[in-house]
Design a protein around this nucleic acid. Sequence first.
DNA 1: TGAACATATGAACATATATTCATATATCGA
DNA 2: TCGATATATGAATATATGTTCATATGTTCA
Lengths: 117, 117
Amino acid sequence: MQNDTCFEQSVHQDRVEKALLEAVTPDQMDRLVRIFKLLSEPTRLKIVLALNSVEMCVCDLAAYLGASQSSVSHQLCNLHNFGLVCRRREGQTVYYSLGDEHVSQLLAIGMAHAQEV
Amino acid sequence: MQNDTCFEQSVHQDRVEKALLEAVTPDQMDRLVRIFKLLSEPTRLKIVLALNSVEMCVCDLAAYLGASQSSVSHQLCNLHNFGLVCRRREGQTVYYSLGDEHVSQLLAIGMAHAQEV
DNA sequence: TGAACATATGAACATATATTCATATATCGA
DNA sequence: TCGATATATGAATATATGTTCATATGTTCA
């Protein structure tokens, strides 16, 4: 549904057009949404925060979180699919760590905002 | 449920304890989750991105998004409750803008990561 | 004060998704 | 190869939440 209560006159066309011009592509939007969504769920965010401190295997994370192995593995899969975490196998164990420096930057800035609210 | 498939031996206690020591408080976790959750939904993210370019009123945003006034107003309320956007009233019109510089920083870093994936 | 317009909001529904359960895959050691 | 252990994954369910609908609130102007 469109502007149900807004009349045309009340819309500032210049502002709308400016926003439209500077809008990111749908593709970029999807990726941006996906990044923030991955960080917006307690289990996944705790995983990412923990990996920001120390490399851990699936069982370590399950113990740390008090969560099931399956749940942790599912979420690690989600995080890995989008490059937020890396993994390396060592025998039967798979160790996870943060994917790139952008992730810890996002955490740092998020924390900064969280503290001052 | 806890570690269903993980045996005690497979857990690196030192790593788990390090993560536990450096863990943020539940309160901080809640706030951090909330920030990322607010940015993780297409309508809200588009709003925030648009406000990063130009101050807009509710009807501007509804027109820009092709969304209903009600939906936009609900989401602006969510964003405002957590300080991600500011508002100022001018007559019947309420103008919204970004809340603080952390928000645009998060967007910038998120975009940087989105582009290289 | 009353009409018109911009915005806000409560309740209900529809959809997305996190967890669980069951099981599959992968690696190591004997 | 077989048993044990660590991890991965498909399907189902339960929960969270975004949108809609209806309506309330707030502001201006005549």
